[in-house]
Design a protein around this nucleic acid. Structure first.
Lengths: 133, 133
DNA sequence: ATGCACCCCGTACCATACTACGGTGTCAAG
DNA sequence: CTTGACACCGTAGTATGGTACGGGGTGCAT
């Protein structure tokens, strides 16, 4: 039933060091430690790590994930708090997308201005980047 | 005519340390150094820094900017090489946008499932993040 | 000539999320 | 009982793009 750190790591597709890192960072509870000193994880530990992995995939930083996890164990906290974090993250992502779109627009504008073949000393892209303000 | 590092920094809105950092990283040429040891920049130096700033704003990393700069001084290089970097960066940005959109979709799906008010122990968002695979 | 702003250098530090290393101890199979 | 795989710990290194610090030297104005 009880798992070693190595088994948890393999089940989650991460390295042992990553689990220890999450523990140090307060993302994973300290597991039982028999006299040997070896960590003994309950099967649930795999889900703790998966929670972190899924949250990361949604764009949450480890700091934010730690906050989500503390909301989970805070009996006074409600769903709204969690929802709020998710909505804030959505807003965050939208801002990033907007920013990336602007970058892309600017790059497209530069690339269409460049017809190639000329030496780089006459490149309209480099000129646009280097021109005085 | 010649500028101190501090003047260049102010003109570009960056710190003196940033200019020295760019120099160390090979993004800015070593300027003249009279006996005092103080860097003496030509007025053009401001444009070197602006080139870096604009390239950064388009999403290029310092490593990529270094490459753009070496294309600029490579008389054998042509515009196409520069255009290629710009197009690669556009593709890069599109990939990032796609990734962010997927995150957003997933988050939206979770938030609409959450109606708030309940304790976090029954939060559908947290449940989705923590459920076994 | 004296003060103060500015410059020099090397090094260390910030956040992020790990990853690697070295030296040692433990468990389980043969 | 030995051997090999696995675990322990603390520290340091990776990439990115700077920022800060400490101890010193310089240049200009008053």
């Amino acid at each position: 039933m009880a798992l070693t750190i190595g088994r948890v790591a393999v089940q989650c597709g991460v390295g042992v060091e990553t689990i220890r890192f999450y523990e140090r960072e307060g993302l994973i509870a300290q597991p039982a430690r028999p006299e040997s000193g070896f960590r003994k994880y309950p099967p649930d530990a795999v889900r703790w790590v998966r929670f972190i992995q899924r949250s990361k995939a949604l764009g949450f930083s480890l700091r934010e994930i730690r906050e989500l996890l503390s909301l989970r164990v805070d009996s006074a906290a409600t769903c709204d708090a969690v929802k709020g974090r998710a909505e804030a993250k959505i807003a965050d992502i939208e801002k990033k997308i907007g920013h990336l779109r602007e970058m892309k627009q600017a790059l497209v504008k530069l690339t269409v201005a460049c017809r190639g073949k000329r030496p780089t000393s006459e490149c309209p892209i480099l000129e646009a980047l280097g021109d005085g303000d």
